[in-house]
Amino acid sequence: MKYLTRALSVLLLVLFTSMGAQATPLSDLFNGGSITAGDKLFDNWSLSFYDASDGRSFNAANIDVTPLNDGGTNPGPGLQFTVSNNELSVTGDGIYAYVDLMFGFRASVLDPTMRIRDNSLTLTDGSLAWDPADGSYDLGTYIRETIGSAAGQENLGAKDVQFSVFGDPQELIDNTFNSATFAPQSEIWVTKNILVWSVDDTDTAELFGFEQRFSQTPATVPEPSTLLLTGLGIAGLVALRRGKKL
């Protein structure tokens, strides 16, 4: 008999809040598409890496991306990723079966008075099925996300989420939420590395969905005293230049 564990903590909430929003296949985004959620624009999507132990090809059309326009300033607008057709599902091969996917995109503000303050990542739906009779457990889903101020950088932070089972006796790792905090930015670059794996041929790991949120804050406006000092400085420079001309 197999045991089945599902991470569904926020799935129903996501379904209700994203009703009416238009989903876009990840394949369209890789071909130059973009998504808008709230005052955030998500563009410059690119596939960085893909590998699978069984030699399968990656079909980005099996991952839909839906804008989440709720959330206010915190947790903010975001994206829901929904995986279909077992695109990120793995059954063990007795050695080490896996799917390894990496992609990235840019998140930027459309409202010049707002900034991205931080972001969060949540595994919303997945399953682990294992057979206790074999006495060995090594399967799961894992996402590592890095955030940078430019493409390929991770100077703004990194985070990990994981839903997996290891060892004998079995140990369930259920860290399905994580967040990163950084100074307000007008744009950030996000890179996701997704790994789904299973060892025993009686075990299956599946990732069906995850959610991304981007908190926001008003852009800092210089105080009147700062503006006054800046104005006096500029006026002084103008007077100095005029004096030199005379």
Rank of each mutant, 00 (worst) to 15 (best):
F210Q: 00
N155V: 05
Y142I: 13
D125P: 08
A150P: 11
D174N: 13
V199L: 09
Q185R: 03
N193R: 14
A107S: 10
D131G: 07
G209A: 07
A205K: 00
L121N: 01
P184Q: 08
E154R: 14
T113Y: 13
F166C: 14
A129Q: 13
P169F: 04
D125S: 13
G104C: 09
R106S: 03
D200E: 13
Q185S: 03
R144T: 14
A150R: 11
I147E: 00
R115T: 10
E145A: 08
D200Q: 15
R106I: 09
Q153K: 14
S108T: 09
F210C: 01
F210I: 03
N175S: 12
D131R: 08
F166S: 15
G140H: 02
S198L: 07
D111A: 03
L101S: 00
V109H: 02
T176S: 07
W189N: 04
S186E: 15
Q185G: 01
F105M: 12
G140I: 03
A129W: 06
D174M: 11
L110S: 09
N175E: 11
T191I: 05
T176G: 07
P184A: 05
Y142M: 14
A205F: 02
V199I: 09
S149K: 05
L139Y: 00
P224Y: 02
V190M: 04
F163K: 00
V161Y: 00
L156R: 00
P224M: 06
Q185N: 02
F210S: 02
F214I: 11
